[in-house]
Deep mutational scan, measured.
Amino acid sequence: IEKFKLLAEKVEEIVAKNARAEIDYSDAPDEFRDPLMDTLMTDPVRLPSGTVMDRSIILRHLLNSPTDPFNRQMLTESMLEPVPELKEQIQAWMREKQSSDH
């Protein structure tokens, strides 16, 4: 029984630690959010139409349809242009958020 109590305490400790580690990014500025999924972008790319999306989301879309989801023009992965300035701004915002939450 004592071992179970210790195990339960350890589990509670881990759960509390994980809860502290989770950071809420739901208040991200609109320009940091993917327009299709409304999630925080981690690897922004510009489509030929000028729309900026997260790379993982547009690549997932391209698996089903080789088109720009906003104007239905033909689109391939090679046409995606990285946006390193925005990526750095997002990373800086995330770092600031992490340091203010801890």
Rank of each mutant, 00 (worst) to 15 (best):
M79L: 07
E96D: 10
D101Y: 06
P44S: 00
P84A: 11
A21T: 09
Q89E: 06
R72S: 02
P35H: 02
P82S: 08
I58M: 03
K97I: 13
S100T: 06
R95K: 02
F70C: 00
K17E: 13
D101E: 08
F32V: 01
E31K: 06
E85K: 12
V52A: 05
D54A: 00
L86P: 01
F70L: 01
D43N: 07
H61Y: 01
A16T: 11
K3M: 06
I57L: 04
D30E: 09
E31D: 12
L63R: 10
I14F: 12
E2K: 09
D101G: 09
E81A: 10
I14T: 09
F4Y: 09
I90M: 00
E22G: 05
E13D: 10
L7I: 08
V11E: 12
F70I: 02
K10T: 11
P82L: 03
L62R: 02
N18I: 09
S78R: 10
L40R: 02
V83L: 14
Y25D: 15
T42P: 04
D43E: 13
M37K: 02
Q89P: 03
S56P: 08
T51N: 12
L75P: 01
M79I: 04
P29L: 06
K97R: 14
L7P: 07
I23R: 09
L40P: 04
D24Y: 12
D38N: 04
R60P: 02
L75M: 04
S26C: 14
P84Q: 07
A92S: 15
S65P: 00
D34H: 00
L75R: 01
S26N: 15
M79R: 05
D30Y: 06
S65T: 04
D27V: 05
F70Y: 15
P29A: 04
L80V: 06
L86R: 06
L7V: 07
M74R: 11
L59P: 01
D54E: 12
K87T: 09
V83A: 07
H102D: 15
Q91L: 10
P69H: 00
E85G: 13
Q98P: 12
D30G: 09
I1L: 06
T51S: 13
H61D: 01
D27E: 12
Q89R: 13
K97N: 15
I57N: 07
A21E: 14
A92D: 12
L59R: 08
A19E: 13
F32S: 00
I58L: 04
N64H: 06
Y25H: 09
A16G: 10
M79T: 04
P35R: 02
M53K: 01
E77K: 06
A92V: 08
Q98H: 12
E13Q: 07
F4S: 10
P44H: 00
D68A: 00
P48H: 02
F4V: 08
E88D: 11
S49C: 04
E77V: 05
D38H: 04
N71I: 00
Q89K: 11
D68Y: 00
E13K: 07
L7R: 09
L40Q: 03
E13G: 11
I90N: 01
M41L: 05
I1V: 06
E2V: 06
D101H: 06
D54G: 03
V11L: 08
I58N: 02
S100N: 10
E96V: 11
V83G: 01
I57S: 14
P84S: 13
S78I: 05
K87R: 08
L80R: 00
P44T: 00
W93G: 02
A8E: 13
G50V: 01
R46T: 05
R46G: 04
V52F: 05
H61R: 01
T76P: 03
L6F: 12
P69S: 00
T51I: 14
K3E: 06
P66H: 08
T39P: 01
E85Q: 11
T67A: 02
P29T: 03
F32C: 02
D68H: 00
D54Y: 00
D24N: 05
S100C: 10
V52D: 01
A16V: 09
P82A: 12
S65F: 04
K87N: 09
E12K: 12
F32I: 03
E88Q: 09
I14L: 14
M94L: 14
K97Q: 14
P29S: 04
K10N: 13
Q91P: 01
Q73E: 05
K10I: 05
I23M: 13
I1K: 10
H102N: 11
V11M: 12
P66L: 10
M37L: 15
F4L: 14
L47Q: 00
L80P: 00
A16S: 12
K3Q: 05
R46K: 15
E2Q: 06
D30N: 06
G50C: 03
M74T: 11
H102R: 12
E77Q: 06
H102Y: 10
Q73P: 00
E12A: 07
S100G: 13
E2G: 06
L47M: 04
L80M: 04
T76A: 06
P35S: 02
M41I: 07
K17R: 10
D24E: 15
D68V: 00
A28V: 12
Q73R: 05
E77G: 07
E96G: 11
M94V: 14
Q91H: 12
L63F: 00
Q98L: 10
Q73K: 08
I57V: 13
L80Q: 01
K5R: 07
A8P: 10
Q91K: 09
D30H: 08
L63P: 03
I23T: 12
V11A: 09
P66T: 05
E96Q: 08
D30A: 07
I57T: 15
E2D: 15
D34Y: 05
T76I: 06
D43A: 04
V15M: 08
R20P: 13
M37I: 04
K17T: 13
A92P: 02
E81D: 11
P44L: 00
P69A: 00
D101A: 07
I57F: 13
N64K: 03
S99N: 10
T51P: 15
P29R: 05
M94I: 13
E31A: 10
T39I: 07
S56T: 05
E77D: 07
E12D: 14
K17Q: 11
R20G: 11
A28S: 14
G50D: 03
L62M: 14
E85A: 07
W93S: 02
E31V: 10
D54V: 00
A19V: 12
F70V: 01
F4I: 11
K5I: 06
L7F: 14
L86I: 08
M41R: 01
P48S: 03
Q98K: 14
V52L: 04
N18D: 12
Y25S: 14
N64Y: 15
M53L: 15
T67S: 06
L7H: 10
R95S: 12
N71T: 15
R72L: 02
R33K: 12
S99T: 14
F4C: 07
E9D: 12
E31Q: 06
R95I: 10
